[in-house]
C-alpha cells in the first residue's frame, strides 16, 4: 500500500475539508427537501415563471452584450494603447465592488431621469422593474468573466496566423471572423457560459433595479422572508437543479465542439 508523507497527508486532509465545506451545505439542503415538496414547488406557477425569466434574461444579456464584448476582448488582446492597464483594471471593477452598490449605480444609470432612462421612455421602454433593467444589472456584474476569458483566448491565437491571412488577401474583418474567432472559440464559449451562469445567480444588483418581475434568487429571498427556511429550501433546490442541468448541457455542447478536430484526425 502506498504510504503518505506527513506533508501529503496534510494536503489531502485540507483538500477534503474544502470539498466538504462546499458540498455539505448543499447536500444538507437536498436531504432536507422531500421529493413531495420539490414536486409541489415545481408545479407552482410563480416559481416556474421566475426560473424561466431568470434563464432567458441572463441568456439575452449574455448574447446582446457579447456582440460588443467579444470585439473589445480582441482589441485588448492585440493592441497596446495608452492607459491599457487602467482599462484592464476597469473591466474587473464589477467583480470587486459590492453588488448592492453596483445595483444602486445601475439604478441611477437607467432610472427615468437618466439619459438612458429618458431614451428608453421615448420608445416606451422603462428599465426599472422591467426585464431589460434586470438584463443590464446581470450584464454589469457578469461581463468581466466573458471579457477576460475571450481576451485570454485571443491572446493564445498566434498573431502570425492572422498575418498569414492578411498576406493571403483577407481583410482585417475577414481575418477576425475566419481565423481569430474560430481559434479563440473554446475560451469565448467558456466565457459565455460563465457570464450566463454569473448573470443567473445575481441577486444584489438586480434587486435594486427590479424586485418585480421576480427572478429566482429574489423569489428565494422573498419566500425565506415571508415564510421561512422550510419554504425557501425547495425553490433553492429546484433552481440549483435546473442551473446544473443547463451547465452540464452547455459544457457538453462545448466539449463536443472541442473534440471535433480530433474526430477528423
Amino acid at each position: 500500500m502506498k504510504s503518505f508523507t506527513p506533508f501529503q497527508l496534510i494536503v489531502v486532509l485540507a483538500s477534503a475539508l474544502i470539498l466538504l465545506f462546499i458540498i455539505a451545505p448543499l447536500a444538507g439542503m437536498f436531504v432536507a427537501t422531500s421529493p413531495a415538496d420539490l414536486f409541489e414547488t415545481a408545479k407552482d406557477i410563480e416559481v416556474q415563471q421566475s426560473i424561466k425569466l431568470t434563464l432567458w434574461v441572463s441568456l439575452a444579456a449574455t448574447v446582446v452584450f457579447s456582440v460588443a464584448a467579444i470585439p473589445f476582448s480582441y482589441l485588448l488582446a492585440r493592441k497596446s494603447f495608452p492607459l491599457k492597464s487602467i482599462v484592464t483594471g476597469i473591466i474587473d471593477l464589477p467583480i470587486v465592488i459590492p453588488h448592492s452598490a453596483a445595483g444602486i449605480a445601475i439604478l441611477g444609470f437607467v432610472s427615468r431621469n437618466s439619459l438612458l432612462g429618458k431614451a428608453g421612455s421615448a420608445i416606451g421602454l422603462d428599465f426599472v422593474g422591467h426585464p431589460a433593467g434586470i438584463a443590464v444589472a446581470m450584464a454589469f456584474v457578469s461581463l468581466p468573466f466573458l471579457i477576460n476569458a475571450a481576451r485570454d483566448g485571443f491572446s493564445a491565437v498566434p498573431e502570425r496566423l492572422e498575418k498569414a491571412a492578411l498576406t493571403l488577401g483577407a481583410s482585417p474583418s475577414r481575418v477576425f471572423f475566419t481565423i481569430a474567432l474560430p481559434l479563440a472559440w473554446r475560451n469565448i464559449l467558456s466565457g459565455l457560459i460563465l457570464m450566463f451562469a454569473r448573470g443567473m445567480s445575481e441577486f444584489g444588483a438586480v434587486i435594486m433595479v427590479a424586485y418585480h418581475p421576480m427572478i429566482s434568487p429574489i423569489l428565494i429571498y422573498e419566500r425565506f422572508g415571508a415564510f421561512g427556511l422550510k419554504y425557501a429550501r425547495p425553490v433553492s433546490v429546484l433552481f440549483i437543479l435546473i442551473s446544473l442541468a443547463v451547465f452540464i448541457l452547455l459544457r457538453m455542447l462545448a466539449r463536443n465542439k472541442e473534440q471535433k478536430p480530433v474526430h477528423h484526425a
Binding site: L161, K163, A164, L166, T167, G169, A170, P182, L183
Partner: peptide, 29 residues
C-alpha cells in the same frame, strides 16, 4: 494595404491554419 499588395509570403513555421482542412487552407485566398 497588405491584402492588396499581391505578394505571397510563406512563413518559416508555415502558419497553416490549424482549424481548417488542407483543402480549406489552400482555398482560403
Amino acid at each position: 494595404k497588405i491584402q492588396q499588395r499581391e505578394i505571397g509570403l510563406v512563413f518559416q513555421d508555415h502558419a497553416v491554419f490549424p482549424h481548417l482542412t488542407v483543402n480549406e487552407n489552400i482555398s482560403y485566398p
